[in-house]
Structures are given as C-alpha cells and as structure tokens.
Write a protein that binds this DNA or RNA. Structure first.
Lengths: 148, 148
DNA sequence: GCCTTGATTTAGAATAATTCTAAATCTTGA
DNA sequence: TCAAGATTTAGAATTATTCTAAATCAAGGC
C-alpha cells in the first residue's frame, strides 16, 4: 500500500535537482545528502561512507562515490580538493570559499567570495567559465598560535 | 678535485631557495626542478618521474615526491589540486591562476589573480592568511565547441 | 498491474596515488 | 677524519578511487 506522504522540503528539493539533471531519487542518494547536511564539516568520501552506514548498513563505498558524483552533478554539493589527500564534499551551496590550514589540514567556510565580475577575470576567447573557486591557504588559529 | 664551477643562474637560485628553508642542493632536486621548467605544462608526480628518468635513470618515485615537497616548501613550485585525480606541479611562480577544463581535465595558466586587498577577504581573528589560490572551472575551447 | 528498458546498487577486484620503512649513501660542520 | 643528520633508494604498504558484472530497482508503455 502506498500513501501519499508529504515530503520534507529538502527531499523535494533534492528530487527536483536530481530530476533536472536526469537523475533519479534513490534512498542512497537521500541518505548521502542527509549525512552531508547533518554535519557540515567537510567529510571525505570515506567519512561519508561511515556515517551513512549508521542508518543504512548495506550501502557500499562505490555507491557513496556514485551518490556524491550525482549530487555534485546536479548542483547540490561541491567537491573540494585542497591538498594531496582525499577529496572533501561540501553541501553548503551558498557562495563561499574555503580556508585550509596548511599545517593541520582543517577546513573552514569563509562566507565571502569574489564574483567573476568584480574579479574582472579575462579568459581567452573560446573558454567557457562556469565558476571561480577560491581557496585560502594559511594557518588556523591553533596552528598560528603555535607557530609563533 | 673540486673546481670552482660557475653556476647557472637558475641553479644558484635553486640553491638559495633551498638553503633559506634549511634544505640541501642535491642532483635529484636539481633534476626535478629542471624537468618542471623544461616543459611548463602541469605534470603529475608520475609524469615528473618519467621525465626525470631520461637523464637520471636511477631516480626513484619516493625521491620525486621528496623533491617536489622540498621545492614546494622553499617556494619554487606550486602544488595544484584541481580534481580527484593526481596532484599537479607548477613551476610558474608568477602570480597567476589556473583554468581547469571540467570535461577533459586540461589545465591552463591564466595570468591574472585576485590580490588579497582587492578581494577584500576578511578572515576571522586568529587565522593567518598566506595566499589565495584561484581556480577557474569551465570548459576549454575544444570542449566548449563540442558542448554546443 | 505487468513488462521492458535503462538506471542504480552492490561486493569485490583492480588500479592509481601516495606514504612508509629500513638500509645505504651523501653532506656538512667540528 | 669523524659524527650527526639529511637524503636517496627499492619495495612494501596504505589510501583513494575506479571498474566489473550481476542483481535489483524505477519509470513509462501497454
């Protein structure tokens, strides 16, 4: 039996985005999306996998990668590569940049970015610029204090 | 016997930078630096390894990583992480940003950046901002043409 | 509702990228 | 010349990501 259950706004949002990219809404994609929004640190695929398993023990690593790719593709998650280590995922789609501590590897959202207009970036003819990613490198408060 | 051989400017530059970071000038570090400057595409560690072996067949992968780290540490090379794949290395220390084609993965130097001042980035108290990395994402001319 | 088609998930293998280890070899300064 | 510490090396180990083929699922047509 199927009852017409009202959907949480985030779920319908998720469905809309997925559908716009020709992707389906699946329990796994929901779960991965949920995990990312639950704790908006910047988890690696592995961390997402571990957290997702709490409520969905049968999910596999390959699926986590698939889901993350799907979410990135439909514009609900950003992929963040800041160093040689594992890629991180960020569900905050508000315009912002990332501060990366080159010493301890911690990541912070910085609610400020440079828009293409104000940056006045001129790209050569033929290129199509989709977005500008800004990564701030330096030391976090803890490491900065110790560095003195 | 040791003769006082005059050094090429780039070599003395390399030595100066290394020394300033408490690092030694070694043939391997010279070779890796040379490889990067020979062809300023944005090679991965693996590509650097293959190219370095031409003139130094006994160099090892671990050493290439060590050398790249040393060069990054002393400010002669930039590490560039643009996606989930291997890290790339860029010997162009002129202020510039990278354009990354999200479709084919090609990388281009864009001789333009956003200075911390004009960006007007305000980081929270306690953080130490060392540099701003700007990555431009989109499609290269080839992929942009095909995408239409 | 049933069926077909293609999308998605799965476990596990495979590959790729990076780091680690311990021994050998340099380099520098005393 | 020696000692101490830095660097290199091969190869193993680890980590991160992708691939594979089979099983399952979802959506649209009948």
């Amino acid at each position: 039996m199927r009852t017409a259950s009202p959907k949480a706004p985030s779920e319908s949002n998720l469905n809309t985005h997925l559908a716009n990219s020709g992707l389906r809404l699946t329990p796994q994609r929901q779960r991965v999306h949920e995990v990312l929004r639950e704790k908006m640190d910047h988890p690696t695929a592995d961390q997402v996998f571990l957290r997702a398993k709490d409520k969905m023990p049968e999910i596999s690593m390959a699926t986590v990668y698939n889901c993350l790719d799907a979410l990135v593709q439909c514009g609900l998650v950003r992929q963040v590569t800041l160093d040689r280590g594992a890629t991180r995922y960020c569900p905050n789609m508000q315009d912002h940049s990332h501060f990366y501590c080159d010493n301890c590897g911690s990541v912070y959202d910085i609610l400020q970015t440079i828009s293409p207009e104000e940056a006045d970036i001129k790209i050569p003819r033929g290129f199509r610029l989709d977005n500008i990613e800004t990564n701030l490198h330096g030391l976090c408060p803890d490491c900065a204090a110790k560095a003195k």
